[in-house]
Computed example of a mutant assay.
Amino acid sequence: MRRLLIASLILSAVAGPAAAETRYLAYDASDRVTQALTRGVTLEADRSLLGAISVRRIISTSNRGAADIRRGGPDAVRRALPAGATQTSVYAIASEGDGRGLTRALCPGSEEAWLVLGRVQLGRPLVAQAVGRWPDGAFRHCVTLSYNWRGEWATPPASSSGDDSSAPVGR
């Protein structure tokens, strides 16, 4: 019994990272505010063996840029959300590369920004709340972004062409 338990633990430790798979989930802007800021996005996400989806990068579907995001942030981010917001997963927008531009676009004047997402599910709309931290230390809600499910890319969207006419693989 003990050997079986040890073998199971070793197998799960080795299979855990291998079981996660990278997915590219595409969304189109569903309102004018979102359209003006992002047009559409593709989320580079990991899907665990149990089906949970964790986002690690946000890519402009129109190939304008990509920003790394990492899970976590201060509790003040959630407290800054508007009344009735149901999103709970906080992601910090990296300040390197295109993350700085994304922060400026979503929260002009802020020093840092976070995206707060609801549960990411295939085939479902997505709502993201942007929250920024200003030089005075205050956390403020910046914008609500609303997206309609577009589909899933088989590979990441190409970054060299300037159009978004290619369609993702449907699911």
Rank of each mutant, 00 (worst) to 15 (best):
A80G: 04
R78L: 15
Q87T: 04
R71A: 10
D75F: 10
A85W: 03
A80S: 08
S89T: 13
R70T: 09
R79Y: 05
R64G: 15
D75K: 14
G72S: 11
N63G: 13
A83E: 15
I69M: 04
A85F: 00
R79Q: 13
N63R: 12
Q87S: 08
T61C: 12
A92F: 07
T61Y: 05
Q87C: 04
G72W: 11
A85E: 01
D75P: 11
G72M: 10
A85I: 00
V90Q: 01
A67H: 00
R70Y: 10
A85P: 00
G84P: 05
G65D: 06
A92R: 14
A80M: 09
P82A: 07
G73C: 07
Q87P: 00
R71Q: 12
P82M: 10
A92W: 06
R79E: 06
A92D: 05
L81P: 03
N63M: 11
D75G: 12
A67R: 01
R79S: 09
A83C: 10
A67E: 03
R78P: 04
Q87F: 02
P82L: 11
G72Y: 14
D68H: 08
R79D: 06
D75C: 10
V77E: 01
A80Q: 04
R79V: 03
R71L: 12
P74Q: 09
A67S: 06
V77K: 03
R64K: 13
A80V: 05
T61F: 05
S62E: 15
V90C: 01
G65Q: 06
G72K: 11
G72E: 08
P74G: 06
L81R: 02
P82V: 03
G72P: 03
V77M: 05
P74H: 09
A67G: 04
T61P: 02
G65C: 08
A67V: 03
R64T: 12
R78Q: 15
A85V: 00
Q87G: 04
G72R: 09
R70H: 09
S89V: 07
A92G: 06
P82C: 13
G72C: 14
